[in-house]
Design a protein around this nucleic acid. Structure first.
Lengths: 336, 336
DNA sequence: CCTGTTTCCGGGAACGTTCCCGGAAACGTT
DNA sequence: AACGTTTCCGGGAACGTTCCCGGAAACAGG
């Protein structure tokens, strides 16, 4: 069942059928109707591979995302998708596992689908210029971390929150309310991820408040998921060290922390406050509602796509924009 | 950057490069090395469109899923993906919005990517035989509902829980514990979805317990998401009708219900019990832990793929298997 | 040295589209 | 009536692969 079958059955050439398919004006109304009828009868659907092959797919941008298990990204992806469509481009999504090389994945995607641009969502982004050069097309990082600064800022763009600064703000929110012994729940102190950046912000906030960070109040999960965070929080509690608040480097961690605290009989926020960063949908429905710094995902998606489009269309403006979070006061923080 | 560039640079023909790419034995070791080196230097990646075009992609199965916003599916998708890979096939995922025609989406996917099989995840499945015939390839429905029975069972396969029966079981769990006034939170009573089937099970359980269903205790959300379910539960509470338990037709609804009840000052489970169906990961971390009937997603994915593979490989065995849920007792149900 | 076999490689058709180009009508204009 | 213009259509190259087929070496056995 090819375009030729349709052409034969409707008594026209393949070219004409193609024109009907891509509603090109150069086709008479009667012929168009006839062809459409045959197409409908045959349940014909054009072959995408052949299509992509010939038109070299210069109108689609790839999105590679690390950690689809992180619910924060679903909102971001939705936003990005919407913006890409609005810009008249197509989108192809590629999810990678936590261990994978995102740059390699991006390069593969770029060649294989002939993309015109690439968006990296999440993960760390510490690559040297010659590695990114292999991509050969414009790209932008969104909600990323580049803790090493290995890549000169001029060679690419980025959109994200200032993770360190926002984390500082979150923790300051706690110290401002009298909290001194603040535990932290994070992914890993040196995984080059946003979690690490947020941890730094945590340290800075403590420092500014004249508090010495207590290693016993730091708990790393080493894997990004709910069970790990939950177990981490249990270990923290089991350690017997006293603390009046916990800073969760992600909403998911916050929710898991809430659960562990509840099971340990520690009331939130009376006996222990909790604050997090992200603002995923589910955190609105935790009990109590999680107090968190919500990331403006729509704005992030929009800006990321806009900048990328500008670069694609020649106006070369690489940019590194920081967007601000919005503090959503739930019911998990109490002054002491 | 095509296969010909690689061929030219390494002094061989395109055929040879192709052989190296698909590690065909008919190539000497020295040539293979040379070619691989050039490939590496050029960062060459074969064009997938061209590849798919020629080998007609007879080794990939399509998965169309309605409602990716439903976290239940993420687990199911993961399971299906794993099994498909294990069977040596590739998978292509296609998400559709709630209003879309899944059969049309499936058909399009099938033609356009030349699939060998199709898996439909979620949604209703009420189509006539001539419509499904348009697909032209074997397919299976997983976690679906076919409330109308419009399609003869012999023409396709399915794997799911018996939604009506499991819902009956859930509600019976409540009536067995003395509950009489049981509210229900569902998507819509006649959307042909699993929610409707579960609603029927709810009615049956009440009937068996000699309880008259009270329309005032039924709340429909008409859209599948957390805010809608939350608002629904608020309306239910606001109605002022007394109830001692609520049956949520999905875990997400249960979590939203928990929140609404909490805000209304109704203690769970002391003043109101909650039971749901699905078993999504997040429901383990609600406070209290949601009591729910968890669907065996790994088993479902495995069976769905196995049956589909058998059909694809000729052994024609259409089957309709029901898998059983597993009651996970959390802390949201209390006898009265 | 001849012949048969194996190993390796290149040529070229095919996959299903799109799109440029050229041409044939049909229509208008002087 | 002759000539431009417009409208519509078909031919055919091109996209980047795979894979069959045929052939050239290299090698074996007699």
């Amino acid at each position: 069942m090819t375009i030729k079958d349709v052409a034969r059955l409707s008594g026209v050439s393949a070219s004409t059928v193609s024109r009907v398919l891509n509603n090109h004006p150069d086709v008479s109304e009667s012929v168009r109707e006839k062809v459409l009828q045959i197409i409908d009868e045959l349940h014909y659907v054009p072959n995408n591979s052949a299509r992509d092959l010939v038109r070299s797919g210069e109108d689609t941008v790839g999105v590679v995302v690390r950690g689809a298990e992180n619910p924060f990204f679903t909102g971001l992806i939705r936003s990005v998708e919407q913006e890409i469509e609005k810009a008249g481009y197509a989108m192809v999504l590629h999810q990678i596992k936590s261990g994978d090389d995102e740059l390699a994945a991006g390069a593969e995607l770029a060649r294989s689908k002939r993309l015109c641009g690439l968006i990296f969502l999440g993960g760390s982004f510490d690559y040297t210029a010659d590695r990114t050069a292999a991509l050969g097309i414009p790209f932008i990082c969104c909600s990323y971390s580049n803790s090493f600064g290995t890549l000169e800022k001029s060679s690419y763009s980025s959109v994200s929150i200032n993770d360190e600064e926002e984390a500082r703000r979150a923790v300051k929110y706690l110290t401002d309310r009298g909290h001194q012994k603040i535990a932290v729940l994070l992914d890993s102190v040196n995984d080059h991820s946003v979690s690490e950046l947020r941890y730094r912000g945590y340290c800075r906030a403590l420092e500014e408040a004249g508090i010495d960070p207590d290693p016993d109040l730091t708990e790393e999960t080493h894997v990004y998921d709910l069970p790990a965070a939950y177990e981490g929080m249990k270990r923290l509690i089991g350690r017997g060290k006293d603390f009046t608040a916990v800073f969760a480097t992600a909403d998911s961690f916050g929710i898991a922390a809430l659960k562990a605290l509840n099971e340990a009989g520690k009331k939130v926020p009376e006996e222990c406050s909790v604050i997090a960063i992200d603002g995923i949908e589910m955190s609105r429905y935790s009990i109590p509602t999680l107090t968190t710094l919500v990331q403006p995902v729509e704005e992030m998606g929009r800006k990321a796509v806009n900048i990328l489009m500008d670069v694609i269309e020649g106006k070369d403006r690489t940019a590194h924009v920081y967007v601000k979070t919005d503090l959503r006061e739930g019911g998990t923080v109490k002054a002491i």
